[in-house]
Computed example of a mutant assay.
Amino acid sequence: MSKYARKSINKLSAYVPGEQPRPGEKIIKLNTNENPYPPAPGVQKALCTFNPEVLRKYPQPLADTFRLEASNIFQIDPDQIITGNGSDEIIAMIFRTFVGPGDTVAWPIPTYSYYPCQAQMQEAKVVELPFDENFDLPEKLEKINARVFFIANPNAPSGTLIPPARIETFAKKIKGLVVVDEAYADFAQSNCLDLAKRLPNLLVMRTLSKSYSLAGLRFGFAFASKQIITDLLKVKDSYNCDAISIHLATQAIRDQKYLKANVEKIIAQRNWLTAQLRSLNFTVQDSQTNFIWAVVPKKQNAKLIYQQLKSDGILVRYFDKRGLSNGLRISIGKPAENRKLIENLKRIIPQ
């Protein structure tokens, strides 16, 4: 590290993304919750026919083409939508806008490990409270005097869902901003979009990385009151979404039929993989996402299983953290990939 960085940055442990295979490496990749199916046909066509002349000029500052399309699809005022270079950028905007040095932020754990990184950058005080045994919000959370509460829903890495009614009750009891991170909402039975339309202190984030098969595009968006969006626009980078991503993101959300068909296939494989893992004595949470959280059988070592799978050419996610080190997070792949995973686990784990 250099002598020029702020003290909070020198102390910061950077976020560690999921492992990416080297170019050309043959890997079954089930570790970063990407969609196993390609983007919508309209996205592929739009990419192939994109006019390079457009790149000579700056893109739309507010991604208006996307916001108007999203407004129509999600039935919300376009002025209640903001876009970002992935939902991670929107998280960063939220911290820069609403959290200053010494301010308190809070969330239930385990959760998305990017939140603490942003909190440390802002020199914020972090309060983390464990989920209860049913992965419901901890009762003590509403007693925290926080500027912002982050709730990943469905949660990562557990894959569990908190009902919108429970989140609404929570939001009405507290004074701070409630951020509901819905990266996996399209795979769930319910979502909190309606709450973002009605509650003045609630923001819902979405991404195109998971259900829309566009993790490589880096495009996220959020819904909130016009007042919250106006605040966020003050700290947004001038042209934070490029012209190609705006164009392709717009094409992606237009094809809701393709989205739903892919989601149905992934849910079917999620159900199959859950049953298979349980038959191997894994403890598996009922998931509302495109991944599964699987606690390994007794007397088995999750890290060793992860390492053995990796040597076999299968990547899953292992977290060397307290409370998570006995499990594996497994993304839902195509049927053949999921079958290969189960075949290898049967070989690794004595029956």
Rank of each mutant, 00 (worst) to 15 (best):
Y4E: 12
S13M: 13
A14Y: 10
A14M: 10
K29T: 07
N33A: 11
A46M: 14
L47S: 14
F50Y: 13
E53G: 14
L62T: 15
N72H: 07
I73H: 04
P78N: 09
P78H: 13
D79A: 12
D79V: 02
I81H: 14
G84C: 04
E89M: 11
I90A: 13
G100L: 09
G102K: 13
A106Q: 06
P110Y: 05
Y112G: 08
A124Q: 05
E133V: 06
N134S: 09
N134P: 03
F135G: 01
L137V: 03
I151V: 15
A152G: 09
A156G: 01
I162V: 10
E168S: 03
K172C: 12
K175H: 10
V178H: 06
D181Q: 06
S190F: 08
N191R: 11
N191T: 06
R206L: 07
F219W: 00
G220N: 03
A243E: 13
I244F: 04
R254L: 14
K260D: 06
T274A: 12
R278P: 09
N281T: 07
N290V: 03
F291K: 04
V295M: 06
V295W: 02
K298P: 00
K299P: 00
Q300W: 02
I305K: 00
Y306C: 01
I314D: 08
Y318K: 00
K321A: 12
G323H: 00
G327Q: 04
R329M: 10
K334A: 12
P335C: 02
K346Y: 03
I349P: 05
